[in-house]
């Protein structure tokens, strides 16, 4: 088989993974982009979702119900981070790290003190399986479309708008009577519920939950969010932005397939994605610096500052 046919044969698997992890990336988008809260809980909550789903399925509970379990379990982990942050005054990043740390033994307990639980397709009917990547694509796509629609609705409501205001300007939000602790809580629960759901689906896909399955999830989530933003930079609509996140996750997994074909392994990929995320995060900063330098040069050339900050973007005032 030549390089391209082999790569093509891997596409259904890559797309399926991308769609499943796309759900997680949507969760990361909610905290990182909307709430402006870099939430590191996800590395733990993804596994919590996977563990809960796998254990439920092994115990004969139907796969869709197991997914609801994963969703709820994920939401609870988000609530824990929220409590650490809003009720105990712990800075956001630290709150997420603490949750992640605490979740490791909890995830092991959920799996009966084993580091993995296998929930094989042969033993019980599941909704996603690596053995049928095409069907998985369809199911995961339905999930993604459904979740994107729900998020579009939610962030259009009063409560959703309040969450967005909290992320955009918490002082303004409080001045408008928004309980920012509550809105942060809502966003963290919603985000980690999606991450848990993603974990539940992924555990079914790979026929097992594993205590390490969430390791580096935040990196993948950020990469997906950033790739999506670059690809969909011209789309302003909220639904378009969310679609971009899912597409970003798919692109990420296609790139992984490519990279592995070229002889690198998935661990190398983590290094590459860290680099990509770092560079894309740096771009706006560099752009800004450059713009400032140019402005300084211009204003020193003719001795005036034609472009005071408060009037920069408009000709109205």
């Amino acid at each position: 088989m030549n390089f391209f046919t082999a790569l093509l044969a891997q596409m259904p698997d890559a797309v399926a993974k991308g769609l499943i992890w796309g759900l997680m990336a949507l969760g990361v988008y909610i905290t990182y982009k909307i709430l402006d809260f870099p939430d590191l809980t996800v590395d733990g909550s993804l596994c919590t979702g996977g563990a809960v789903a796998a254990v439920m399925i092994v115990n004969g509970i139907p796969a869709p119900v197991a997914l609801v379990g994963a969703l709820i379990a994920g939401g609870i982990t988000g609530a824990v981070t929220g409590i650490l942050h809003t009720k105990m005054g712990i800075p956001g990043i630290l709150a997420g790290i603490l949750s992640q740390l605490a979740l490791y033994p909890i995830n092991l307990r959920i799996m009966g003190n084993r580091s993995n639980v296998s929930a094989s397709v042969d033993a019980s009917p599941v909704m996603a399986s690596i053995r049928y990547p095409e069907q998985t694509c369809l199911i995961a796509l339905l999930f993604c479309v459904g979740i994107v629609l729900i998020l579009c609705w939610f962030f259009g409501t009063e409560l959703g708008s309040a969450v967005r205001a909290t992320g955009s300007n918490p002082n303004m939000a409080r001045a408008q009577g928004i309980n920012t602790n509550r809105t942060k809580m809502v966003a963290l629960v919603l985000s980690n519920a999606l991450v848990g759901l993603s974990g539940g689906l992924f555990a079914q896909y790979q026929s097992a939950s594993d205590v390490h399955m969430g390791r580096g999830a935040i990196g993948i989530g950020l990469a997906a969010v950033i790739i999506g933003q670059v690809l969909f930079s011209r789309v302003r609509a909220f639904g378009g932005q969310l679609t971009g996140v899912v597409v970003g996750a798919i692109v990420y997994y296609i790139v992984i397939a490519l990279v592995i074909r070229m002889g690198l392994n998935t661990n190398d990929m983590k290094l590459i994605s860290a680099l990509v995320v770092a560079i894309f995060l740096a771009i706006p900063y560099w752009k800004n610096n450059l713009a400032q330098k140019n402005r300084r040069r211009n204003s020193s050339a003719d001795g005036t500052d034609k472009d005071p900050a408060w009037n920069r973007r408009s000709n109205h005032a």
């Binding site: 409501t157 009063e158 959703g160 967005r164 955009s168 300007n169 408008q176 009577g177 928004i178």
Partner: peptide, 26 residues
């Protein structure tokens, strides 16, 4: 104001100052 939100969204937030935020349209 919330810079990432539109003029009408900012006004709508202010129109609900001090009210409970529900799941009705923003």
């Amino acid at each position: 104001t919330a810079g990432d939100m539109t003029i009408e969204e900012n006004l709508a937030l202010a129109a609900r100052r001090g009210e409970k935020r529900t799941l009705r349209w923003g």
